[in-house]
């Protein structure tokens, strides 16, 4: 009797264990297929994209500050519209833009600063790509600091406005960049779209 109880107990443990394992696997698969779907969506845009994204990571297309700022502004716009899905998709694209960033045109000391900036902005983009909107916004705050520091080194090709919301993050405040002087708050979206002011202009 005792022995069979023991065996039963162990059996239940191992069944429970397998369930945990297979649930984990299932989750992984879902993520994979979701990512795959996103890619195929991207491919509709043009055949060129298709060719590029099937390349390996070592062969990422070279990018620069303009592509990065463009992605960032798109991300900002998605957050002003409370669009979590779009924000995560753009952040995924931003990861590739960062990985392809060509810092060769800059001086050695600039390059080392840029390297540090890209390292943290890569982490923030990765988090934004896989997180719910509240957490996306938390990382967007830090990503904005990265982008502001980046353009102070690289300069910018188009007019940018640095804007500031004093309320976000327990009233610690947060900045962001916009191509438009009008305030559209990415931290609160529709809840408080016009909260904020222009802090600085980058011509």
């Amino acid at each position: 009797m005792k022995k069979s109880t023991l065996i039963l107990g162990i059996a239940i443990m191992s069944i429970a264990g397998f369930t945990v394992q297979s649930c984990g696997n299932q989750e992984g698969k879902n993520v994979e297929s979701a990512a795959g779907h996103d890619n195929s969506d991207g491919h509709h845009d043009s055949d060129k994209n298709h060719g590029q994204s099937s390349d390996s990571h070592s062969n990422v297309a070279k990018t620069g500050k303009d592509e990065l700022i463009k992605d960032y502004l798109e991300l900002k716009n998605a957050l002003t519209k409370d669009d979590e899905k779009k924000a995560s998709k753009i952040a995924g694209k931003m990861v590739e833009t960062i990985q392809g960033f060509d810092s060769a045109p800059y001086t050695e000391s600039q390059q080392s600063e840029i390297k540090d900036i890209l390292e943290t902005s890569l982490e923030h983009s990765e988090h934004i790509a896989k997180s719910p909107i509240a957490h996306q916004r938390e990382h967007f705050k830090d990503l904005s600091v990265d982008m502001i520091d980046l353009i102070s080194i690289t300069g910018n090709s188009t007019m940018l406005y640095q804007q500031y919301c004093p309320m976000y993050d327990n009233k610690k405040g947060a900045s962001w960049l916009s191509a438009d002087s009008n305030i559209e708050n990415p931290y609160y979206g529709s809840k408080m779209l016009s909260c904020g002011k222009v802090e600085k202009e980058y011509k």
Binding site: S4, I7, L8, I10, A11, M13, S14, I15, G17
Partner: peptide, 12 residues
């Protein structure tokens, strides 16, 4: 039932 349990035990 016993056989199934034994099998699971072996796997475990």
């Amino acid at each position: 039932l016993k056989r199934i349990l034994l099998l699971l035990f072996i796997v475990f």
